[in-house]
Design a protein around this nucleic acid. Structure first.
Lengths: 202, 202
DNA sequence: CTCTCTATGTAAGCACTGGTTACTTTACGC
DNA sequence: GCGTAAAGTAACCAGTGCTTACATAGAGAG
């Protein structure tokens, strides 16, 4: 950023890009990705609407940036929740973090996993790079439980664990299940049981 | 419908409501719920935009009607896929039907499970009435596999089965997994195994 | 210490949207 | 036949995404 850094009535904003992302994030969390406009974000930053398009060539670009932030938040929460735990407890903690994130921030969760964001992420690199950290945390936890190496985790097991957590998260965040529906916990329990019953490879 | 039934240049359309739904369904399937406008649907029906609002007080109303049609299609496909099967095979067929539906018609699937549609459905009746048929088909299949009564199916088992199928469907329809990712099948397999290993109650 | 180059911002405008309002046309039941 | 209410029209409002032509200012070269 080689341009001016003043932010009081000056012609240049200083860090408009980040200001737009911050505002968009808060609006997405509060009311969803469709609820705010580029003009509104620009207005909030005290800038004309055209200026916003200097930083994001389209609204979707801003939303992708917000979604990326969302994945970082998710990864961080998962890491915090599972810190100091191990075995099945660690598995549960991760699943719970995923579900809690979705139910606390449904609009953000929806945006992150929207077709558009996943498409944009895919276009920008190898597939699993999108959900990278949270997913690798899950893989590691499963490796520990089944006593194997992370690289050799049973892919079927990973698939059920992921899809179960994602399914429960989605059902809650779309309002099919309620926020503290016991079914979400029950589903996670079953997955833990399944992981524990897997033959332990050396 | 007590009004005129002509549809060639006459002042009244005949069945505008259904025409709007039909058009909206095809547009949703093709390009998603956000891709078309009320005006466009009216135009396609050869009618002014205001006329459309006579039948649906807002665009969301039309979309809810489309989503309801979607649930009927899903239930029908699930029934067809599982017809003539039994036991674990029946379970798999249902799971596959759910996933196939989502991957064949991602935009419709997304609409059906959108916050808005689920909210609208909830406001209109008891909760599980939204996904009624497909869900009760799953419950029945689990009852058969675990040798119990439909009313007494293990809720945990139902929860994993549903969330796994829904999770895989969501991941595919949002482009995280590809259409024929082996992980979806693997996840279903694990669920079948789990159901089969449940103690058979008399 | 100018002078230019480029990132950044502005203002105005286009085509369109969801949704409303006042008014017309039509068909049925009495 | 005729009033009533459903069904349709045209015109409008505020707001949107995005573009284009123009203004401003900061940094680095001369």
């Amino acid at each position: 950023m080689w341009c001016g850094k003043n932010d009081r009535g000056e012609y240049h904003h200083g860090d408009l890009r980040q200001a737009l992302i911050d505002y968009a994030l808060s609006r997405v969390r509060a009311d969803g990705a469709e609820a705010f406009s580029m003009r509104e974000a620009a207005r909030a930053a005290g800038v004309s609407s055209g200026a916003a398009y200097r930083h994001f060539s389209e609204k979707d670009g801003l939303l992708v940036a917000v979604a990326q932030g969302g994945f970082q938040i998710l990864a961080k929460k998962a890491a915090q929740a599972s810190a100091g735990t191990s075995g099945a407890e660690r598995l549960r903690a991760l699943g719970n973090a995923y579900i809690t994130f979705a139910s606390d921030d449904p609009n953000l969760f929806r945006l992150m996993f929207s077709q558009m964001c996943m498409g944009a992420a895919k276009a920008a690199g190898p597939q699993e790079l999108t959900v990278p950290s949270a997913l690798s945390q899950l893989r590691d936890a499963l490796a520990e439980v089944t006593g194997t190496d992370s690289a050799e985790v049973d892919e079927s097991l990973l698939a059920v664990a992921w899809s179960t957590a994602h399914g429960a998260a989605s059902l809650i965040c779309d309002g099919v299940w309620t926020k503290d529906d016991t079914r979400a916990q029950a589903a996670l329990d079953e997955v833990c049981r399944m992981a524990l019953s897997k033959p332990i490879k050396k």
